[in-house]
Design a protein around this nucleic acid. Structure first.
Length: 558
RNA sequence: UGGGAUAUAGCCAAGUCGGUAAGGCAGCGGACUUUGACUCCGUCAUGCGCAGGUUCGAGUCCUGCUAUCCCAGCCA
């Protein structure tokens, strides 16, 4: 346990919290929240935020709320609120009884807005969206004040109430904060607080036809929930003055502190909700949970574990500099998690038949295979050996290079858990010249565990008995994109090698598996059983491959 | 001179009062090995975006630059 604590790094947010605790700020409470808008599926970038917010709460004996930031009914749907809850729970976090919705606070927020109007700090503006944009100015030029900016409190109150009552058309009026049209911060140039929308909201239905904007709703939601540290991503840095303005305008207490951190980027994939949605909607992938997707549900289906994702989030750290994390770290984390806890079995992805000519025709013997040599408590399983087996096609080379120490004509090699065999003949298809079969002999004195021959061989191969093995589909994945620059405009370009389906032969012990079960296939990597599996047709997703030194040698020589 | 932020190895990242650059991933070299995996050992920044300055001493302080990211939704 203490080992695990060691690699959890400190970061600037913890420094802020430590300082606050030292000063007795917030009655020494730590209360965070994870506030997604239910407009899509969660991805690994959200996992960083979830682990951060829930993780800080648990580390400081505080609380973390789950809050849906549902202030824009046209984008949101219950499908997403359900998937988000499932994903957060699956990651291993518990919001207990603190599941909230910004829409819970619509009345409270409305009342606060009337208070703002009464204090002369907000006004109803009749400009069109286009006019508001034009009068906002530019990055280098100040904006100009709305002609409606100095309406009386009475008129503003009347108009705002009539907005709420549905008397005005969408887009005809908004409520704006009265701040400073010349502010160098664009967000402070009389930002819109409320807009009219007659869209049905997934929770409040048609009860409301005015909806608060994020910049207004977020600080209030945080304050209503007594959040102490409101953690968001870097692009909201410019919004912090508005966050503070909203609470200060009526001197609202408590006043949570907004803290920004850099969002996660991963090499060779893309996290933009827009692009992910496009992949789903164009049918380029099978859905939000396609194993190639960086969504939580995609990673789950691929076979990633919550432990691995949490470990990853601990290892990447939290800082304010924009960065791109190498996906090799994520892959390391899942290998690390599964290494000691899943069975190691044999699967031949590209089978080549081997006939052991000196083995009895009808002979079958039962061998004993360790389920995981590094976890002896996982025990053993029986393994059938017979005269005809399959080996990996790439494990035989007719004309092998120097450093190849697998099978070749005349060479000896060990079959894992079985015997040493020697290659005697190569059988070809007469028409195509393709190698269809190998004839080998075995040495009966070399049975695994009771070797009397004293032979040493350099290579050990995995294999599957032709008679006992079972066919399975194996899906190998490459990364979603090679590079973000390979996405053309709005149309995401899927890596053509992103999924390869193979017909493999696997050990008989895999006859009965359940979706989500994990295995390590020797040499090939970590796999999970896909829910697509049916009776007699198992589908394995490769989560990640193993390190392949041989491939590296080959590459280097080329 | 719009404003806001960031810059420490191939990648992420720690570095709180200035005291002589953590850790992880990747890489490289070696040992071990019934899979070339795993494991173990070794190695990997005379230097912290650049240039000056203060100081016995600077990644940390000061001055001036540079590069990159974010902001002109009635999205979040």
């Amino acid at each position: 346990m203490s080992n695990e604590m060691q690699h959890i790094p400190s970061h600037f947010i913890k420094n802020i919290i430590n300082e606050d605790l030292k000063n007795g700020k917030n009655d020494s409470r730590v209360h965070t929240r994870f506030p997604p808008e239910p407009n899509g599926y969660l991805h690994i970038g959200h996992a960083k935020s979830i682990c951060l917010n829930f993780g800080l709460a648990s580390e400081y004996n505080g609380l973390c709320n789950l809050r849906f930031d549902d202030t824009n009914p046209i984008k949101e749907d219950v499908e997403y609120v359900e998937s988000i809850q499932e994903d957060v729970r699956w990651l291993g976090f518990d919001w207990e009884d603190r599941l909230f919705y910004a829409s819970d606070y619509f009345q409270q927020m409305y009342d606060y807005a009337e208070g703002l109007i009464e204090a002369g700090k907000a006004y109803v503006c009749d400009l069109t969206a286009e006019e508001i944009r034009r009068t906002r100015g530019t990055l280098t030029e100040p904006g100009t004040e709305s002609p409606f900016r100095n309406r009386s409190v009475e008129e503003n109150l009347d108009l705002f109430r009539r907005m709420k009552a549905g008397e005005f058309e969408e887009g005809s009026r908004v409520l704006r904060a009265k701040i400073d049209m010349a502010s160098p911060n664009m967000n402070m140039r009389d930002p819109v607080l409320y807009r009219i929308s007659f869209a049905a909201h997934h929770r409040t239905g048609t009860q409301w036809c005015i909806y608060p904007m994020y910049d207004y709703a977020h600080p209030l939601s945080d304050a209503y929930e007594s959040i102490t540290h409101s953690i968001c991503t870097l692009e909201f840095e410019d919004h912090r003055p508005l966050y503070d303005w909203t609470l200060n305008a009526l001197d609202y207490q408590p006043h949570p502190q907004q803290i920004e951190f850099a969002r996660l980027n991963l090499t060779r994939t893309v996290m933009s909700k827009r692009l992910l949605r496009a992949l789903v909607e164009t049918g380029a992938v099978d859905g939000w949970d396609d194993p190639r997707m960086p969504t939580i549900s995609g990673l789950r289906r691929r076979g990633y574990t919550p432990e691995a994702i949490r470990d990853f989030c601990d290892r990447i750290g939290v800082a304010k500099s924009n960065s791109v994390v190498d996906i090799a770290l994520l892959e390391y984390c899942i290998r690390e998690d599964l290494k000691l806890k899943v069975p190691r079995v044999m699967g031949v992805l590209n089978p080549l038949k081997v006939v052991i000519t000196n083995y009895p025709e009808e002979g079958v013997e039962e061998l004993r295979a360790e389920n995981n040599p590094e976890s002896p408590e996982m025990g053993h399983r029986p393994l059938q050996f017979s005269r005809e087996i399959y080996i990996e096609r790439e494990d035989f080379m007719e004309d092998p290079p120097k450093k190849f120490f697998r099978l070749a004509p005349g060479r000896e090699v060990r079959l894992k858990y079985a015997y040493i065999i020697q290659c005697e003949a190569v059988i070809r298809d007469e028409a195509t010249g393709e190698i269809v079969e190998l004839h080998c002999t075995y040495d009966p004195d070399t049975r695994s565990g009771e070797d009397k021959s004293g032979k040493k061989v350099k290579g050990t191969l995995h294999w599957v008995s032709a008679e006992h093995g079972i066919p399975a589909e194996v899906r190998l994945y490459d990364h979603l994109y090679l590079d973000e620059s390979e996405t053309e405009g709005d149309e995401p370009v899927l890596n053509p090698d992103s999924r390869i389906k193979l017909s493999a032969m696997v050990e008989p012990c895999l006859q009965k598996t359940v979706a989500g079960e994990h295995f390590q296939f020797l040499r090939h990597g970590y796999f999970s059983v896909d829910p697509d599996s049916q009776e007699g047709r198992i589908v394995f997703n490769r989560i990640v491959s193993l390190r392949d030194t041989w491939a590296k040698i080959q590459k280097a020589e080329k």
